[in-house]
Simulated assay, not measured.
Amino acid sequence: MTACIDTLDTPAAVVDVTRMQRNIQRMQAQADRLGVRLRPHVKTSKCAAVVEAQIAAGAQGITVSTLKEAQAFFQQGITDILYAVAMAPGKLTQALALRRAGCGLAIITDSVAGAKAITEFGRAQSESFEVFIEIDSDHHRSGVRSDDPVLVEIARILHTGGAVLKGVMTHAGESYSLNTLEALQAIAELERSECVKAAEAIRAAGLPCPEVSVGSTPTALSAVRLEGVTELRAGVYVFFDLVMHNVGVCRLDELALSVLTTVIGHQAEKGWIITDSGWMAMSRDRGTQSQASDYGYGLVCNSAGELIEGLQLRSANQEHGVASFEKGQNVDIEQRFPIGTRLRVLPNHACATGAQYSAYEALDERGEARQWPRHNGW
């Protein structure tokens, strides 16, 4: 069933399908140019229709952030899945059930304790889990350093039964704090070189390491070369967001996700436009706050998705958003934005904003919206 954007209940998460398709084609073309497989991280959309579009464009396999995602996309018919969060021993039973059902689920670890838990459980269940070792390429979060002796120790444990050492993977999350092409190219090369060095160290110890998996949206779009890498992972590129705009990898007119909201009141003396898009609609993510340009809770557009110069959603309560213009802009807000006016807000972080909704309203070039369900929870 389709609907017109003017009839949708608000707040609503709206996907501009034309923009989304362009973003998908752009990343696929980059992976093809660099000579690697693209394994998109579907935690951004968690949506069957979006993932179908990525695979149709040439993606091979997917990356997930929860085992619930893995189950949902396996039921959709996707079998090549990487669960890219260090495996908690208590979740091995879920992973086993997926593999026994025919899902080619691969998991990751970055510690001796994690590797032992996987292999001991695998041997007890007569299962050989496919495992990647997570590499810390930029001191961002998780992983083992390429020159740490524990790397080969983990690889040896995984090679002794109960598991198959599938390869190494990394995520240069520090790229999100950068904003120049030179810096992004440098961290993309660091991501590549550190992961390749880790693979070479494992191979030098006489152990197999067939796959080298790297990626984040900024590094994927900025990489100049990916020698030694077999696959590229990226996620938020499918929608982009204001954080990615500040990083410098997309224009504002490439952001494919917005929140449709309604004006529900005014505080004229303060210049406030009150909307029904509070932080429950936008998420609490204020990712641009630490960047060169702070966009509050989002930049405001008209219902057609055209940016309104100087208007931001500057604060939010649970169900109320407060939008206002920059100082010096004298706007009769009650006349220009009467109660009932529909606006669209571009979010800081597409993954976090999408997570507030059970479905997207997919808006096509005719202005018709079709509902696309998404998978939430763990």
Rank of each mutant, 00 (worst) to 15 (best):
T288N: 02
E306Y: 01
E361A: 15
A256Y: 00
T7P: 00
F239L: 11
F325Q: 06
C301R: 00
K43P: 10
R145C: 10
L255N: 05
A57T: 04
R22S: 15
R22L: 10
E174T: 15
T219V: 10
D148Y: 13
L226F: 07
I78P: 05
I78R: 08
R156K: 14
N348V: 08
A198K: 00
L363M: 10
E231H: 02
E200A: 13
A304E: 14
A204W: 03
K166I: 04
V168H: 03
T2W: 14
D80M: 05
A72K: 02
C195L: 11
P208D: 10
E127D: 11
F240P: 00
I274E: 10
Q371A: 15
A163C: 08
A205R: 03
A70C: 09
Q76D: 13
L98P: 03
E174Y: 03
G215P: 03
A101T: 07
I273K: 00
L165G: 04
D80G: 06
C301N: 14
E153Y: 10
D16V: 07
G61M: 04
V168K: 01
D332Y: 13
V229F: 03
L363N: 05
Y360D: 02
I333L: 05
A199R: 00
L165K: 04
V64Q: 01
A113M: 12
A70W: 06
R145G: 10
E306P: 08
L363F: 02
